[in-house]
Design a protein around this nucleic acid. Structure first.
Length: 195
DNA sequence: GGCCGGATACCG
DNA sequence: GGTATCCGGCCA
């Protein structure tokens, strides 16, 4: 939770053979582990897929969803399997490469926003796939860094996206985003949550 | 070994 | 709103 909030405003960098891409994290979601019905590690479920969450934090958890990928930062402490899903970025470095990987021209601000305003979109743009599962985020291939100068913004929280199956947990305010930022995803949380 | 469903995206 | 698309989970 704290990690999810803390990641807002930080920069995600991926150095690949094709080049370097970097984006500012503007939207994240916390998945709190065994007690969180929305989490892949709910009930302590430990499988090949969730294995990486059963260690210490600071690793990459990539999983396939609907034929695409989503990127998470493992935030586990004391063997509590938790992770933070990165839902949207603001492109900062390597815009041409992002555009190429997304197979989409960028001609205006709207196109630019469309490059990384969703969990799988940002994976495509950043060149993140299953080969980065378990990557150490302290290495220099894929990592998180602070902006060089302090940026001022307000973080707000909402329920998470597309977790209707999670019972009451679907409404917990575990999604964080930068207030009024145009690069956050368009997705809406369940309308059955009163917020 | 096969089926199914999902923390999605895109197009019409 | 319908469909494409990739993997892991889970059951046979």
């Amino acid at each position: 939770m704290k990690v999810a909030q803390g990641l807002i405003g930080k920069y995600l960098v991926h150095k690949s053979a094709e080049g370097t891409t970097m984006g500012k994290i503007v939207e994240s979601e916390a998945y709190m582990g065994p007690d969180d019905r929305a989490a892949h590690s709910y009930g302590g479920r430990r499988t090949k897929r969730t294995e990486i969450m059963f260690g210490t934090g600071g690793y990459s958890y990539v999983f396939a969803i609907h034929g695409r990928y989503a990127f998470n930062v493992v935030a586990s402490t004391a063997d509590k399997p938790q992770a933070v899903l990165i839902r949207a970025l603001e492109p900062v470095v390597g815009l041409d490469l992002m555009s190429k990987r997304r197979n989409r021209e960028v001609q205006n601000q709207k196109d630019l926003i469309n490059l990384t305003n969703g969990p799988s979109k940002l994976c495509m743009a950043m060149g993140i796939d299953m080969s980065l599962y378990g990557a150490d985020l302290l290495d220099d291939t894929i990592f998180i860094t602070q902006p060089s100068k302090k940026e001022v913004f307000e973080t707000v929280s909402t329920p998470r996206i597309n977790v209707d199956y999670a019972g009451e947990a679907r409404c917990y305010p575990r999604r964080f985003l930068i207030k009024d930022n145009e690069f956050v995803s368009k997705a809406r949380f369940s309308s059955s949550c009163s917020i």
